[in-house]
Design a protein around this nucleic acid. Structure first.
Lengths: 153, 153
DNA sequence: CCCTCGTTTGGAATTGTTCTAAATTGGCTT
DNA sequence: AAGCCAATTTAGAACAATTCCAAACGAGGG
């Protein structure tokens, strides 16, 4: 489905003078495959299925590498494990406090300029994070055709 | 300066069936005195000056109590220590990535309804958090005493 | 081939926080 | 004032997430 992803990764790594390794590719593939904002430990579990010998330290290393390449973003809600998100489009997060799930919310581009406008003079924002908390009663989480996210590209 | 605060605290505690204690009062006073979003450890340091025998566990307990009373909010930026904020007005946070300081940003009330409007149907948000990241070149940190952290030791 | 350097690895170390069990405190009842 | 009960505090152990470290590995370049 996403045969281009590895190349994107290899390219980005090369740009940063880094090597493409099976571990890095797999970690990235796992993030792209299931965009549920997994923790490092969850990534570890998923990656082990394909590469049983991988170590948790390596997963942390790879995630850090992906973040520094700009391919993945860290998400911190509450004070719990950091979560990882390969969605590079501007978006907000909706944290469902009942299920614990985190959903991406697409945002109209105008919202960012509106938000920047509320900053007093002297404040120069490079980025904005928006996190909703509440509960989502979604019509039907159709596990089949991956309703959310991914689509927008 | 803020002689009403202890009463507010005592009232809130009573409402929750909790007692007012010197430790709780002091922790709350410390948060009100210097609103720089301190970590539990920083609160501990400040509180010890007046109550040297207090333990870190108690500071954590008191902070948790204040949060559950609704007098203080937890703030989590990055994955580092939780920070504590006694500002109950709706506001955003500006995280200065150069100094590490976090400033409160007042928000027009309309922004929240605008934000809720971007949520797809089925999503019911009880709260929204907005965090800016960037750098602030402030004319003069009007907080009078204390330019920032460090100085005291 | 062999050397070098980036990468991976397992385990130890750190950090921030919570848990636990015992000691203390403050009200109430008498 | 004495005693009692429950809330609170305390020190230290336990925990969870993450980082650090030093050794082993592996891929290219000379």
């Amino acid at each position: 489905m996403n045969s281009a992803a590895p190349d994107v990764l290899a390219q980005r790594l090369a740009d940063s003078g880094l090597r493409s390794t099976p571990q890095r590719e797999l970690v990235y593939a796992v993030l792209l495959a299931k965009r549920d904002h997994p923790t490092a430990d969850q990534v570890f579990t998923r990656v082990k299925e394909e590469l049983p010998g991988i170590s948790l330290a390596t997963v942390y290393n790879c995630l850090e590498t992906l973040v520094s390449c700009g391919l993945v973003k860290q998400v911190n809600l509450e004070r719990e494990s950091t979560r990882y998100c390969p969605n590079l489009h501007p978006h907000a997060h909706f944290h469902d406090e009942i299920t614990g799930a985190t959903h991406d919310i697409d945002l109209p581009p105008t919202i960012f300029s509106k938000l920047r406008a509320v900053l007093p003079p002297g404040y120069d924002a490079e980025g904005v994070e928006i996190t909703f908390r509440g509960s989502a009663k979604l019509p039907a989480p159709s596990t089949s055709r991956e309703s959310r996210t991914a689509t927008a590209h």
